[in-house]
Design a protein around this nucleic acid. Structure first.
Lengths: 115, 115
DNA sequence: AAATTATATGCAATTTTTTGAATATAGTTG
DNA sequence: CAACTATATTCAAAAAATTGCATATAATTT
């Protein structure tokens, strides 16, 4: 007999990844914590849209928000999800911050390549 | 710069797994090919329901149907999906056929534990 | 404290997915 | 060939996910 996995729970967690923009967000977050404006610049989507996806991920518990002044940085904190992403997207090697043209001045404090 | 994965395609493939019943089906198929009646018995869902999920998986190309008389056996043929399932569900070790009470006589030909 | 900036929330419209149920098909057996 | 069996298809209803947009909040700067 199969040691029955909790298919419902696993499916719910997979649903978080089964979305192109959330996958993009997670692919960034698994490298290092990112502030919302970075994600906005990288995805090219409206800010409320990004925040909504972040809320979904946050409420599911796989990411955590860390406020720093006006900015909010998000960090991927679920080890299992990180492992899944590594298999599904490949190892996270490249430094993605180099090509992000994030216009916010706050971000350029924590990342001199950004702006 | 990230060597951009095709997030849309990956998300579409993840969607196939992000569903509890399809996950159950795939967890069976990754062990060995199964006929529809087995899946029906194991999932306890109506046959048209099962066939619909199988169609989705078949049309996406990750499983293949093999007819044998009145029965149709489905086989998981996508190596990448198999690898994903191995990470997500764990290694497929146990013999699940032992506990399926599949009433169909055809199935008992290919599996003496089943009936 | 007013203005500004970064982010969050709420809500409705749309689209997609899920599910159920009736019916169809195709192979098999008598 | 008629009855039967296993599976597939179709279609519609219901539920859920997605998205856009208006607005709210909270920290910061002037």
């Amino acid at each position: 007999m199969i040691n029955q996995p909790d298919y419902e729970t696993i499916a719910d967690r997979l649903k978080l990844l089964a979305h192109p923009e959330r996958l993009r967000i997670l692919d960034l977050l698994r490298r290092e914590p990112q502030c919302v404006c970075h994600l906005e610049a990288w995805l090219g989507k409206p800010q409320p849209y990004i925040s909504q996806q972040l809320r979904l991920l946050r409420e599911s518990g796989i990411i955590r928000d860390e406020k720093d002044g006006l900015n909010v940085f998000y960090r991927l904190i679920d080890a299992e999800i990180i492992a899944w992403l590594e298999l599904i997207l490949g190892a996270a090697t490249a430094q993605i911050t180099l090509v992000i043209a994030c216009p916010c001045p706050k971000c350029s404090k924590s990342n001199e390549f950004c702006d």
